[in-house]
Design a binder for these strands. Structure first.
Lengths: 194, 194
DNA sequence: GTTGTTCTGGACTGTATAGTCCGTAATGAC
DNA sequence: GTCATTACGGACTATACAGTCCAGAACAAC
């Protein structure tokens, strides 16, 4: 063929994702993206198409990583309550240490873009539904194991967990106080008590 | 004196607030603000100072209205659980009917600006703390009345409620399905069960 | 009515930004 | 080595935007 790419598309996307995640879509300029990825505009456009497409691909990447992380946390061979607690602990840890201060990329996109952009709203909705499904399945397994009352509505609990985790991460953007976040977690997890 | 203002500063601010609330800070241009308020740039700048100052004043206005609304909902002469349920019902109602689809203005500012702007982060934090305090006080009164176990941590519950309401409203931006929101509410309110 | 003062509309300015384009560089195929 | 092809850097374009400014309008005081 011809001259090969000098950069790795995957690592460039990872870096672009972090830029969007940290600053939001509008606030991240193409110069920011060039700086973050180390690429020139031409390379960026050739590889990804444009700012919006780059956001979409970043979001997809984040979504896959997030689902994987959640699924892993919920697949541990421990009671669900403990598994969910472990996942939330991880979030709190990252908020307190600073790396989680950017919130949830999906939630950020929802807040910034969903109202003006139906496609983005639908995308975020589907994304959250996938997360919800991961929780629902873990809860259903736990219910089958007898960890959760047969009468409990695992669907509702899954929805609740998704919403309150979004809430927790939003709070984490303005308040990294671990005690406050632990308070939220403690009350939140009571939905898993028998 | 001299020529009087042709517009009412208060209604102009109310309209500007709704513009920011619906579209976000960056996405709301000065032309949008002029259109929303019916004012020219000169009048806008003379009355409010600039885009950022206008956002701050809009946020203050929203904050006062929000606190008043929450305080009113929690001051009803009914059990706290019912009072909180009524408040959340109102949120869901507005989301389902469309008027609540813009989410919480405070939460929107947190998501869009807090990360890049320490002053905004502090402002949002204080704002959420005021809401938290309103819940805490209502919960403490209820606890004194014996509606809530003496052992319950009303501070933690208040924090939890603020976080999960933010989560609910964020979800409401992308999913106005009443059943889903009611699910979240139902699990959320269990923290008030005895 | 005259005068001094404040208000208002809209033109204007400077800057930031997304996206385009082209000359040059690097590579593989033969 | 030559050629065709793709990648890269950076200049360039067009536009959108926040904020400024001024000329004229509207009013109060006298």
């Amino acid at each position: 063929m011809a001259r090969p790419r000098e950069f790795d598309v995957d690592t460039a996307l990872e870096r672009a994702m972090h830029a969007f995640w940290a600053k939001g879509f509008k606030a991240t300029s193409l110069d920011d993206l060039c700086a973050a990825t180390g690429l020139s505009r031409s390379s960026l456009y050739a590889a990804f198409g444009g700012k919006r497409e780059l956001l979409n691909q970043s979001l997809r990447r984040y979504e896959e990583q997030g689902i994987a992380r959640i699924t892993a946390a919920l697949s541990r061979n421990v009671p669900v309550r403990e598994a969910v607690a472990g996942f939330v602990d991880g979030l709190i840890e990252r908020i307190a240490s600073g790396t989680g201060r950017a919130g949830c990329f999906i939630g950020n996109c929802a807040a910034e873009l969903a109202r003006q952009d139906r496609a983005m709203a639908a995308r975020v909705r589907r994304s959250l539904e996938r997360i919800e499904a991961a929780f629902r399945e873990a809860l259903a397994r736990a219910q089958a194991r007898g960890e959760i009352a047969r009468s409990a509505d695992v669907n509702a609990i899954a929805r609740f967990l998704v919403a309150s985790i979004q809430g927790l991460r939003l709070i984490g953007k303005v308040n990294a106080d671990r005690a406050a976040l632990e308070d939220i977690k403690a009350v939140m997890l009571r939905c898993l008590d028998r």
